[in-house]
């Protein structure tokens, strides 16, 4: 990889300042960025580590909201969210492998918005709020397509606030070589209705399956999904699966999640 200057601020404001320098890039756990830099897909002039800002590392249940610091690792969420929001802890516990979970962070995953990442599904189905150094962004506005988010240049995910649903489940059909989901569904049953988020399937990244949400909101049961299917149009097709296969998987994973909840 190309060399770079490295800074490790200890406050959010210092990090924002450092990210204002030309060609600066935030580094969290580095489990995606460092491999990308090795193959020179990314070559920032300055790397700003977000891993040494104490205010960005926490898991805290605050009434019916679970608050997670942006630089909190998957391993820590898996351990510390298990009581307050077990479905989210279970999602975190299945990202990558143990060594990846020791480094990778929720903020890094969301800022990257890989179309097959796990966290975007949990955030979107939970209707979480992404708190940055400058504003709050609702999950529905945050994800804007493959590797694209509402974040501006140099904007940092400081915290993610998850309204804790009455019940939720993450069903992941793993692609065993990458350990990303081939397709996964996060189903959350909120008091105001059901939310269903699908990752790994669409060329536009994580998305809500609105038809299923309407059906589950009126009757939260597997049978409520009878006859419903995700449209294969716009789904990812690669050597691991056709778009029709992924669309089918989205339906299967959603049904499994609902069956596990009821």
């Amino acid at each position: 990889m190309h060399d770079f200057d490295f800074v490790r601020p200890q406050t959010v404001s210092d990090a924002v300042r450092a990210l204002a320098t030309p060609d600066a890039q935030a580094l969290s756990g580095g489990q995606t960025l460092l491999p990308a830099m090795k193959v020179r897909l990314a070559a920032p002039a300055v790397l700003v580590s977000l891993m040494h800002i104490p205010d960005m590392v926490f898991v805290r249940a605050d009434g019916d909201v679970l608050r997670v610091g942006g630089a909190t690792t998957h391993a820590q969420v898996a351990r510390e969210a298990a009581g307050a929001y077990p479905a989210l802890a279970s999602l975190a516990a299945r990202i990558g492998d143990p060594a990846v979970r020791s480094r990778g962070t929720i903020g890094g995953s969301l800022a990257n918005n890989d179309p097959s990442a796990c966290y975007p599904a949990g955030v979107l189905a939970s209707n979480a709020t992404i708190v940055t150094d400058r504003r709050e962004i609702g999950a529905d506005d945050f994800f804007q397509g493959m590797f694209t988010t509402a974040l501006e240049e140099g904007e940092i995910v400081v915290e993610v606030r998850f309204p804790i649903p009455d019940a939720a489940r993450y069903e992941k059909f793993i692609q065993p070589a990458s350990r990303f989901p081939l397709t996964a569904a996060f189903v959350a049953r909120h008091s105001g209705g059901a939310r269903v988020a699908i990752t790994g399937a669409s060329e536009s990244g994580v998305f809500r399956w609105h038809e299923a949400e309407v059906a589950l909101t009126s009757d939260f049961a597997v049978q409520a999904l009878d006859g419903l299917a995700v449209d294969a149009d716009g789904m990812i097709a690669d050597l691991h699966g056709s778009s029709a296969y992924r669309a089918h998987l989205a339906g299967v994973m959603t049904r499994r999640a609902v069956a596990a909840i009821v």
């Binding site: 490295f6 580095g30 460092l34 790397l47 480094r103």
Partner: peptide, 23 residues
């Protein structure tokens, strides 16, 4: 060298990490 294989796993502050994917 692409954080797939795990031959470089060491412990950092008590947690396993892939030493090829940590600066």
């Amino acid at each position: 060298d692409t954080s797939q294989c795990g031959a470089c796993v060491v412990h950092m502050d008590g947690r396993p990490v892939k030493a090829c994917s940590v600066l």
